[in-house]
């Protein structure tokens, strides 16, 4: 099973960059057989990630109405229920890219690990609150990857 972790967001916008910070941290570790992708904000260009992998963890900031720093875990299908129908005609969102992959006949399993941002503003780096949660978020990403690996055996 081909696995990937896809971080998305903008490192120039404070907590919006959390996904990228997670990728940067994971790159320091020896993860075997996992593609680590810094997707930035190039959402429209990420289609191949969903075509080339069977299992993808998306790490992103997610406004879900809980306290900043709260970590959510949802499947793409779960997440779909929380997004207004047909957002694709407005801002292009990552879930639309998952749908595009489906039209091409690729249906990878997608897990979204989202973290509630505290501040999104013009600044490089995370707020202290999210910085404190970063190790926990990374641990959850690694646990997920490990679980998937076990399932294969």
């Amino acid at each position: 099973m081909k696995r990937a972790v896809l971080g998305i967001g903008n490192i120039l916008l404070h907590d919006d960059g959390i996904g990228i910070h997670v990728i940067n941290e994971l790159e320091k570790e020896e993860l075997v057989g996992v593609d680590l992708i810094d997707g930035g904000t190039a959402i429209l260009d990420l289609l191949d990630i969903f075509i080339n992998n069977d299992y993808i963890i998306i790490v992103d900031s997610l406004k879900g109405g809980h306290e900043p720093g709260t970590i959510y875990k949802l499947s793409a299908e779960d997440m779909d229920g929380y997004i207004k129908g047909n957002t694709s005609l407005h801002d292009v969102q990552i879930l639309d890219i998952v749908k595009q992959a489906k039209y091409l006949g690729f249906c990878p399993q997608v897990t979204i690990l989202g973290i509630e941002p505290e501040k999104i503003d013009y600044e490089i780096g995370l707020t202290d609150r999210l910085k404190n949660q970063l190790p926990q978020l990374i641990k959850i990403v690694k646990d997920e990857l490990e679980e998937k690996e076990k399932c294969q055996v």
């Binding site: 904000t41 992103d60 406004k63 929380y82 997004i83 207004k84």
Partner: peptide, 13 residues
Amino acid sequence: GCSVHVIDSEKNI
């Protein structure tokens, strides 16, 4: 599109 890409849910998760 030079900006934010936070996933914004319509209601509380």
